[in-house]
Design a binder for these strands. Structure first.
Lengths: 148, 148
DNA sequence: CGCTTGCTTGGAGTGCGCTCGAAGGTCATA
DNA sequence: TATGACCTTCGAGCGCACTCCAAGCAAGCG
């Protein structure tokens, strides 16, 4: 019940394409250390993400310990992808806020993602240029360097 | 005399492929503000690069002001390319040291560049994955978002 | 001459994204 | 029931890459 319909209802956390859920085990309540193992983030970072508003409200056990859902994991995977595009954490927090505000923010969210998409493309082109420069230099070392 | 022969002699700053020199004007002694205009770096950053050993020795005017050469500009362009691959400044300082040590470090320099090259390639692949994720999400907003 | 502009230095400050520590509560196992 | 692993909060600290500041020197100009 947390996949396609909920996504279509626009009230969930991720609001993206329905991601395949099957996780390490078949559950839907993970401790912080399980999430650490799954995402590669540290427990400190996970708590910090929550403090700064980058996570939706994470459920708690009756004693106050965090219990992450599969949806939380999906969100973390997405956030991690955004992070390595170089997107500032503040922008991701903004996106998270939009998601919390519901489907009235669809347009703004799409614009944010499209602008991110443009950034990523530009970044790829930059990196390709750099690759060309590196290849030139490496080529130099392969000839001048070896036949010296 | 600072182009091809010097490069082939392996004692210059860049030791890469001979870059075309023609610069904003036809000179070879630029003030820091000219270099700012050309590279987009700030004067603060240029001085800081020098302090940490990322620049070869920059020449001075008779009154102690910096005078950058075309070779210095080439180096800065290269450094800027390396920077946006995400290479740490400390690693670039290491490379600069190798260049200063002369042609006996060709092998190590080549290895460093090849390892950087691998990093850049991996980075490009990551970004392409992220692009795919973004496209999926944007696609969702384009359909669910508009036909809501 | 005084003023402005541009440069010099060393050291201190900033913003980001974590990262760690202290002090204490909870849980599973023997 | 006791031990040890794991969890909680809040606040402070860290590493990186700049970024800025204060104090002062030099050159050009009306």
């Amino acid at each position: 019940m947390q996949t396609t319909q909920a996504v279509a209802a626009g009230q969930d956390i991720c609001s993206g394409p329905p991601p395949r859920h099957p996780r390490p085990d078949g559950q839907d309540r993970y401790t912080i250390s399980e999430v650490v193992a799954f995402t590669g983030l540290t427990a400190h970072t996970l708590r910090w993400y929550e403090r700064i508003g980058l996570m939706p409200h994470v459920d708690r056990s009756h004693t106050g310990q965090r219990r992450y859902t599969n949806r939380d994991l999906d969100w973390l995977v997405f956030v991690t992808k955004l992070r390595l595009t170089g997107m500032p954490v503040a922008d991701m927090v903004r996106y998270a806020e939009l998601v919390r505000q519901g489907e009235s923010t669809y347009d703004e969210r799409r614009e944010l993602l499209e602008s991110t998409r443009r950034d990523v493309l530009a970044r790829i082109h930059e990196l390709r240029d750099t690759l060309a420069v590196l290849d030139l230099k490496i080529g130099f070392y392969a000839t001048e360097g070896t036949t010296r």
